[in-house]
Design a protein around this nucleic acid. Structure first.
Lengths: 246, 246
DNA sequence: AACGAACTTTGACGTGGATCAAACGGGACT
DNA sequence: AGTCCCGTTTGATCCACGTCAAAGTTCGTT
């Protein structure tokens, strides 16, 4: 498993402080992006994009958390991606959205109108390359998740999700390689279930089981403490530390 | 769901007749690709790339079928992609392979050494753009498959797989929108199970059930006739015809 | 403080698919 | 023709997770 590349598309003065702006950014690129950007806010629970809609923008999440989901006619839904600050939304060159994007907390997006962005992409190879790297990262993540969905038990699925959230949280506020950590779950039990291909009851039961077994501790419903990250990786069935240690 | 973009990377004289070479190909691009290409053959069952290996090439499948799989320590394996002729393998800019690639039939690949290919990419925006489109297609496919793995029943999973193979087969040998078709299954029951997150016994049982119910007919073990594609799409739980009709 | 709404936990029970096991092709060798 | 090997089918049983139902928790509102 390659460590995800840290690279994203961002205008010059977007308040994304969560990751360093890509070192290869040229100032003229930033200015050009700056000229076509605008901000949009969404409230928790509000849809950002509906599958099939015409999408006339692309953009990055500045703050908050959004989910990418697919739904069947009968209501069964599967989350196919989790969007955290600095994540990119949109598919240059495609007109329609393929998934539902919903804000799970209040969300601020930094948007670029699609046409000018595509023009900029055509004239700025760096941006196209970074976009390719980001898309390859997403593809890796999606395929890793296919293994989780297809072959892991409920307990392993929960542990895998906690691992992913812990890893992303650690990369937002780096503190070196530590063996214990605590973080907030940004998802309801139902959203976790949609991510994992489980029911919310099973998620709840497995969370309780992991707590009983001392793998995690819960403060309230949402705050999770992991006394031993190595133990959590084992529970997830991962053959590595998932790129968390370094 | 967007119809997948038909676009791929191919040298000038590769015998890929299965899809038209991208119309935007400039002849100088083709010549440049031609200069760095070489062919490799693999026998059925032979590994092409092992996860974690250093990959010093990228390339396209010319003939045959290969699978992309991930494996856990204890042997559980999940297929994360199916490579048919004209599909691209490799991740420009990445050194290590993230998955196992195995030839399921005899396979011929048209390879490009990675470094020269990356140089060419840097100097030829068209190639980078096409690669981005292909990666976006793969991402869409992976995410669609996440819904299958996470939320569909065994019977729906089988029907979904048959739908995909029928669709790809139809695009290789176009014959207009027809309601019945027959094709060869390029996979063993075990490979189907690995794709679907099931056991081979369950795959076999569900195939028998679909046969008993008249959704499919089997000639031998591998040849499948579908008297009514619409019926198959319904069985797959798809809200659309999966892009097959046109 | 009392209420209600949304989320979560827990229990009892049913079932779809996994597991274990055995038999059944069909093609490639003697 | 026989037999070996590999893939496939089918059967019997089990269990992880889904389903249905009820109670508990948290938090905002009156």
């Amino acid at each position: 498993m390659n460590a995800p590349t840290i690279s994203h598309i961002s205008c010059a003065d977007c308040p994304i402080r969560h990751r360093a702006v890509c070192a290869r950014c040229e100032s003229d690129e930033l200015e050009a992006l700056d000229a076509i950007k605008y901000y949009r806010s969404y409230e928790a629970g509000q849809p950002i994009i509906w599958s099939g809609d015409v999408m006339n923008f692309v953009g990055s999440v500045v703050s908050g958390i959004a989910t990418l989901t697919q739904t069947m006619e009968d209501g069964r839904t599967q989350m196919v991606g989790l969007l955290l600050p600095s994540d990119f939304v949109g598919r240059p060159g495609r007109d329609g959205a393929a998934y539902n994007v919903v804000a799970t907390t209040d969300v601020v997006m930094c948007c670029f109108r699609k046409k000018p962005f595509e023009d900029l992409m055509a004239s700025t190879p760096h941006i196209a390359h970074r976009l390719l790297e980001m898309t390859l990262d997403e593809l890796d993540a999606a395929r890793e998740w296919m293994l989780v969905l297809g072959r892991k038990t409920a307990r392993e699925k929960i542990a895998s999700l906690l691992t992913i959230i812990a890893r992303r949280d650690a990369s937002l506020t780096p503190r070196g390689a530590v063996n214990e950590m605590t973080f907030d779950l940004p998802l309801t039990r139902e959203a976790m279930a949609d991510y994992l291909g489980l029911t919310l009851e099973t998620v709840s039961r497995q969370m309780s089981a992991l707590k009983k077994d001392g793998v995690i501790a819960l403060e309230g419903k949402r705050r999770v403490s992991v006394p031993d990250m190595g133990r959590l990786f084992e529970e997830a069935g991962d053959d590595s530390d998932g790129g968390y240690m370094s």
